[in-house]
Simulated assay, not measured.
Amino acid sequence: MTEINAFPQTLTIAGTDSGGGAGIMADIKTMQERHTFAAAVVVAVTAQNTLGVQDFMALPAKLIDEQFASLAADLKISACKTGMLADAEHVEIVAANLRKYDFGPLTVDPVMIAKGGAPLLAADAIDSVRQLLLPLATLVTPNLPEAQRLTGMTITNADETEAAAHYLQQLGAKNVLIKGGHADQSEVRDFALLASGDSFWVSAPRVATKRTHGTGDTLSSCITAELAKGKTMAQAIRLAKKFVAAAIAETIQVGHGHGPLNHWAYRGAEAWD
């Protein structure tokens, strides 16, 4: 007889995307594709599509607290991640709950701006992310603009990327993955700095497409799922890079703007596990 809660369970703590391409929707799709059971704590609700974010509203603190308590009372979360957290107040609420409950390794995806340019994190919340979330993070996964905002550093080359990763580690994040999608290069190169001090670059060919909505959410969710299944951090990062590369390369035609990834493109690639 299979033990209750033996199946790997993951948690996304973020905002919804009514268009289905990013946020909690992308997280759950990815976690499911990677054979984990996905749960969610909804921090904010957005009205958005591939053309942009039209509106959003953050949920009351009491309801967020109750979602955390409800999951802790029943499920056995093996790894979790954060995404859109809206503002400083909600960063504080989430951080307090993450200190209260053990939901396994925490991946912090410091979502600040939507693909279409809409702000998803208030400017005054960046200090809260630095001070409250990074010390709890098993991994932080900023893109280049987010890494620059978190560190206050200019990042234009490999040396500056590596220096920024070390700075983020000094702020408390055990492992750091700086994503290079915003760089103007023929390959998308991401830099990983591990808790051990080891580091490496992962790369994939750049695909000429606007259908990259939810890339960061998908990457961090895939890493979360792999950690929940017991993969090492290096293994999880390398596999997630392949997952996202396949999801971008095998595009689907949805929406008139920044379209979503193809979250099932990676199916059948057991050799990559």
Rank of each mutant, 00 (worst) to 15 (best):
T16R: 02
T36V: 13
V94C: 02
A44E: 03
S70G: 15
E33N: 06
E3H: 11
A96I: 00
D27N: 07
F191M: 07
F191I: 08
A73W: 00
I64V: 14
A192T: 04
L11Q: 07
A163N: 13
L85N: 08
A6K: 14
T251L: 01
K231I: 01
A14E: 12
E66W: 03
M112D: 03
I237M: 06
L63Q: 13
L171D: 03
V41Y: 06
G230L: 05
G83D: 06
Q235A: 15
Q9G: 02
E146C: 10
A247T: 11
D87A: 10
A137D: 11
T46H: 06
D217E: 11
A265L: 09
I223D: 05
M57W: 09
T46E: 01
G259F: 06
L51Q: 13
G152F: 04
P260F: 05
L98K: 10
G172D: 03
A61E: 15
S196F: 04
V129Y: 12
S18K: 04
N5T: 12
A88F: 05
E66M: 08
T10Y: 01
D273P: 00
I155W: 09
Q67L: 00
L261N: 04
L150D: 04
L63P: 00
W264R: 14
F200V: 03
M153R: 15
L71T: 06
V202A: 08
T141D: 04
I155S: 08
L98N: 10
K210H: 14
F200D: 04
A269Y: 12
T141P: 05
D159N: 14
V244H: 12
I237E: 07
G257N: 07
G197K: 04
F68I: 07
S220Y: 13
D217A: 14
I4L: 14
A73T: 04
V45T: 14
A183I: 07
F68M: 01
Q253D: 15
H256V: 03
L136E: 13
T12K: 09
T251C: 03
H35R: 11
A240M: 11
G15S: 13
K62Q: 05
L121H: 02
K62N: 04
T10I: 01
T224Y: 00
D109P: 12
A183M: 15
G20H: 07
G197W: 13
A26T: 05
I4C: 04
A165R: 03
I24V: 14
H213Q: 10
K179A: 05
F103Y: 09
N143L: 13
H35S: 08
V129R: 00
T141R: 13
E33D: 02
K231G: 00
N143M: 11
L227Q: 00
